[in-house]
């Protein structure tokens, strides 16, 4: 029990939604029924299966950090600050720089309130993100140093799309910090609803409509120029064809996101040069 802060009630209840049935009677139901996606319907927000939500990207918003970035995809909002390279705290010599990573979903970012301290899930995600970014950073350029990446997910609309956003955002922040990179890192996630619908960049309501029992989730991070996969996570049972198809779809989207990132970086360099 956290006594230093005002705590919300232990139990929260979803608001009732009024619906009108055929006879004109008003009913109150707990929530709108979640609809599974079928190929002939559009998705709830009007996208088709392969579309991602529009991306808004800005770098250099945090003055304190060596580099920073803000990444937005509709209701998914992520910021990232990069500190370093700075000298290792420990005296031990290391030829490669250490890339350390922290990710925090802010308490109000998800439907359920999240704890203030970092939970095991976030610690693991931090690991994932560090592993996804490391291949791109020229760690050998910075012996004896540490590069710290701090990510906050301000709002999360789809768990895995938020993680993908965090990876892309962190890579932009690293570039903004002027750290040597061999390539940028872009990531995309997808929800594979059985039998073979590949929903790119799934939102929270889509994730809820397809619990893991009948769907798989795949997240791929890649170096777009080098055509190398820096991270991949799959959960949920898929056969190999579904996995391959989903991976290909993710890589295709990665290429699109890379286009956006690249365009933005170019623009920002031109802008800075003019100032």
């Amino acid at each position: 029990m956290d006594r230093r802060r005002v705590n919300g009630p232990e139990l929260s209840v979803a608001p009732l939604v009024a619906t009108v049935d055929a006879e004109g009677a008003v009913n109150f139901v707990q929530e709108t029924p979640k609809q599974a996606f079928t190929p002939d319907t559009k998705r709830q927000d009007g996208r088709s299966a392969g579309d991602i939500r529009p991306i808004y990207l800005r770098a250099g918003l945090v003055n304190q950090a060596s580099g920073s970035a803000y990444f937005e995809q509709k209701n998914t909002r992520v910021t990232c600050g990069v500190y370093g390279p700075r000298q290792n705290k420990k005296a031990q010599f290391n030829e490669l720089a250490r890339l350390e990573c922290e990710i925090k979903f802010t308490p109000s970012s998800c439907e359920k309130r999240r704890a203030l301290h970092r939970d095991p899930e976030e610690k693991e995600l931090a690991n994932f993100i560090a592993q996804a970014l490391s291949p791109a950073v020229k760690l050998d350029r910075y012996p004896k140093s540490t590069i710290s990446v701090y990510i906050s997910v301000i709002q999360c609309d789809g768990w895995w799309s938020a993680v993908a956003a965090a990876i892309t955002c962190a890579s932009v922040a690293l570039i903004d910090a002027g750290i040597d990179m061999i390539d940028s890192v872009v990531a995309a996630s997808t929800l594979v609803a059985n039998p073979s619908t590949v929903l790119m960049d799934a939102s929270q309501s889509e994730e809820d409509a397809h619990p893991h029992i009948d769907a798989g989730v795949l997240l791929v991070a890649e170096l777009p120029t080098f055509k190398s996969i820096t991270h991949v996570v799959q959960m949920g049972k898929l056969d190999i064809n579904q996995t391959t198809k989903a991976t290909e779809a993710c890589l295709e989207v990665c290429a699109k996101i890379h286009g956006v990132v690249n365009h933005y970086l170019r623009e920002s360099v031109i802008q800075q040069a003019e100032i």
Binding site: S134, E222, I229, L238
Partner: peptide, 18 residues
Amino acid sequence: HICAIQKSGLGAIPQKVY
């Protein structure tokens, strides 16, 4: 069926062999 995939380690895997 593939139930989970997870990459770890600090390097990258080429798309061709994946």
